[in-house]
Amino acid sequence: MSFDKDPKKTLEEDDEFEDFPVDTWPDSETLRETSNVQTNLWQEDWDDVEVDDDFTKELQAELEKRQQ
């Protein structure tokens, strides 16, 4: 997206929120109307997610050692 087109400006550099470069657009061209992302973007299940990365494995090993 914009990152490729305008690599000079990073997130760090744009502190101030500017108005959109165009004044308006029809309802049919908003993100709300054109994509179904709003329902899919936010996930709720992370409490139940059990990760299995290196950190977690080492942590479990340390805890099991403590239990003995």
Binding site: M1, S2, F3, K5, D6, K9, L11, D14, F17, E18, D19, F20, P21, V22, W25, E29, T30, L31, R32, E33, T34, S35, Q38
Partner: peptide, 21 residues
């Protein structure tokens, strides 16, 4: 902010900076 995002222009070439912010 969710409303701001949803009302944003869907065109990827318009306001990428704003949508990121």
């Amino acid at each position: 902010l969710n409303k701001a995002w949803l009302e944003s222009c869907a065109d990827v070439d318009v306001g990428a900076q704003q949508k990121d912010a």
